[in-house]
Design a protein around this nucleic acid. Structure first.
Lengths: 147, 147
DNA sequence: ACGAAACTGAGAATCATTATCAAGATAGCA
DNA sequence: TGCTATCTTGATAATGATTCTCAGTTTCGT
């Protein structure tokens, strides 16, 4: 996990390569996502953010950031897309998905667990015609609020 | 994996408990899903099915079957929901998610792999305030068609 | 066969998301 | 500093998936 400042510089560089600017609006989106403890949808971000960014702009910011590989989309319950900072920024993690309210919480595995899981994924994908590039373990259940 | 006939009887029983009927339209949806080798969206099913069921009815069938626990929704790329037969009907499995075309393919792990994964999940969820009820391993990459 | 309850079809309505287009901000450069 | 090309933004219209509504139909138990 890198510090906010470092993240900002990394993102600025990445956006530069993509030929787009790291504007105030986009910084605000990244900030809100960095503050969040899990994926957030456009409308959730819209509420989270103090300044009243119009939704259409928010969507555009998200899609620009996504296109540049800064965000990772996560398609969740009720047909909406939530985004989080891409793994190269936020670190590799997994998800606790609440089947009741649909929220997704990030968790990180201990190095040992992660190593075990990686080995398992490798073993599995060796046998199929599929070029694996990553994995996420989705654990389903009820979150603390929805007990 | 159970046979079509058995599945039908199990579903009929389950729907009975839920107080809804197992009608021709609903049988058709289940049939199409049983034939599929992965999750299918409403519009995909609409094409797959010979008879011209109206989309609105198809959506309703899906939501009734989902509500009764017969289907499992799977929210995928491009903001659409695909359904597949629930695990208690189709067996526990995992997903190969193509990041390019968004299709999802089911895979089953060997008993040994599955046991290992289950143990891992158990270890992980022991430490968090989350009532886990299931899990899916999502492997991301490019499918055979999108190489 | 009769009535209540569940189902269906057609279309309107809703919700998330995308596209459009004119106006505003910026960077690079003369 | 001012110019110009380019990227951004905001407001709004448009799209696509999904849900809702309501009137007509089928089904089940009696």
């Amino acid at each position: 996990m890198t510090t906010g400042n470092t993240i900002d510089r990394e993102i600025e560089a990445r956006l530069g390569e993509a030929g787009v600017r790291y504007t105030r609006a986009r910084r605000a989106v990244v900030g809100a996502l960095a503050r969040a403890d899990g994926p957030r949808s456009a409308s959730e971000l819209h509420e989270d953010m103090d300044q009243d960014v119009p939704l259409s702009s928010l969507y555009r910011s998200l899609s620009v950031l996504d296109g540049a590989g800064v965000l990772e989309p996560h398609n969740s319950l009720k047909g909406l897309t939530r985004y989080e900072l891409a793994e190269w920024l936020a670190g590799h993690h997994h998800h606790l998905v609440c089947l009741v309210c649909g929220t997704v919480e990030d968790i990180q595995l201990s190095a040992e667990m992660e190593a075990r899981l990686e080995k398992l994924v490798e073993t599995v994908t060796d046998e199929v015609s599929f070029a694996a590039s990553g994995h996420t373990l989705e654990v389903h259940g009820r979150c603390a609020r929805c007990v």
